Simulated assay, not measured.
Amino acid sequence: MYFHLRNRLKQKPFIKTRVFNKLSLAPHRKGLVLRVVIITPKKPNSALRHVAKVTIYKNIKRIFGRIPGIGYLPVKFNRVLVRGGRANDLPSVRLTLVRNIYDFSPLSMRKRRRSIYGVSRPSGFTKHKRRRYRHLHM
């Protein structure tokens, strides 16, 4: 009986490896791009997805981050901001890069989902005119 308990106490506690552990318990972290890679997704999907290998400044861990949007890709030694958000069909990709912060440029001419791609609101752009007040917007 005691032998069983002694072995149980010797075992290390099981800790899940989560995204927050990689970002050292923060919502965002600054990182440095080491290289940009093109990966193909898992079985039912087919595409060419851009992924960047990033070193996190704080804990010096190297992880893969998804590059959202079409267009400009970060170059080697660019500074980027990394947040959580995994790509379901890409194995080992659990983080996403944030656009329009540090050296990672925004997408131009985006009207919808601007906050994700780092685009500021264009001048004179109203998202939705309420039906009740539409006679006021001429």
Results as ranks from 00 to 15, higher is better:
Leu73Arg: 02
Val19Phe: 08
Ile56Asn: 02
Thr17Ile: 13
Arg49Pro: 00
Phe104Pro: 05
Tyr102Asp: 02
Asn78His: 13
Lys76Cys: 02
Arg49Phe: 03
Thr96Phe: 06
Pro27Cys: 00
Val93Asp: 00
Phe77Ser: 12
Asp103Glu: 08
Pro91Met: 00
Tyr102Cys: 08
Pro106His: 05
Arg112Leu: 10
Phe20Leu: 09
Arg35Glu: 07
Gly69Trp: 02
Leu34Ala: 03
Val119His: 05
Asn45Tyr: 07
Ile39Met: 05
Leu95Gly: 03
Lys61His: 07
Leu9Ile: 09
Leu73Ala: 03
Ile70Cys: 10
Leu25Pro: 01
Asp89Phe: 00
Ser108Leu: 14
Tyr102Pro: 01
Gly85Trp: 09
Tyr117Asn: 01
Lys76Asp: 00
Arg83Thr: 15
Leu73Ser: 04
Asn21Pro: 02
Ile15Trp: 09
Asn7Phe: 14
Val80Lys: 10
Lys53Ile: 07
Lys22Cys: 11
Gln11Ile: 06
Val80Gln: 03
Leu73Val: 06
Tyr57Arg: 10
Val36Lys: 06
Gly118His: 04
Lys10Cys: 08
Val82Phe: 09
Ser24Gln: 11
Thr17Pro: 04
Ile60Lys: 15
Val75Asp: 06
Lys76Glu: 01
Lys30Cys: 11
Leu136Ala: 13
Gly71Met: 09
His4Arg: 15
Lys61Ser: 08
Tyr57Val: 07
Phe64Ala: 10
His4Tyr: 15
Thr40Ser: 13
His4Ser: 14
Gly31Pro: 01
Lys16Ala: 13
Val51Met: 06
Lys127Gly: 11
Pro27Gly: 00
Arg35Ala: 06
Val37Asn: 09
Val19Leu: 03
Val54Leu: 07
Asn45Arg: 13
Tyr117Ala: 00
Val36Trp: 02
Leu95His: 14
Lys12Leu: 12
Pro74Thr: 03
Phe77Pro: 00
Leu34Met: 10
Leu97His: 05
Ser115Arg: 14
Val36Ala: 04
Ser115Pro: 04
Gly71Glu: 08
Arg94Lys: 12
Val33Ile: 14
Arg49Thr: 02
Leu5Arg: 13
Lys43Arg: 11
Val51Asp: 04
Phe20Cys: 09
Arg131Trp: 14
Pro68Ala: 04
Ala26Val: 03
Arg114Thr: 04
Val82Pro: 01
Lys30Ile: 15
Ala87Val: 12
Phe125Arg: 12
Arg121His: 07
Ile60Tyr: 14
Asn100Ser: 12
Arg99Phe: 07
Asn59Cys: 01
Asn59Lys: 06
Lys61Asp: 00
Ser108Glu: 15
Leu5Val: 12
Arg110Ile: 06
Val75Met: 10
His50Glu: 08
Arg18Trp: 06
Val51Thr: 05
Pro41Thr: 01
Leu32Phe: 07
Val80Asn: 02
Lys58His: 13
Met1Thr: 12
Tyr72Asp: 12
Arg94Met: 10
Gly31Phe: 12
Asn78Ser: 10
Leu23Phe: 10
Arg114Asn: 10
Tyr2Ala: 10
Gly69Asn: 05
Arg131Gln: 14
Arg112Asp: 11
Arg132Gln: 04
Leu48Tyr: 03
Met138Phe: 11
Thr40Glu: 15
His28Tyr: 15
Arg113Glu: 13
Ile67His: 02
Val119Trp: 00
Arg29Ile: 05
Gly69Glu: 02
His135Tyr: 11
Arg132Ile: 07
Arg66Trp: 14
Val75Asn: 09
Ser115Gly: 08
Thr126Leu: 13
Arg114Gly: 11
Arg62Glu: 00
Val82Asp: 06
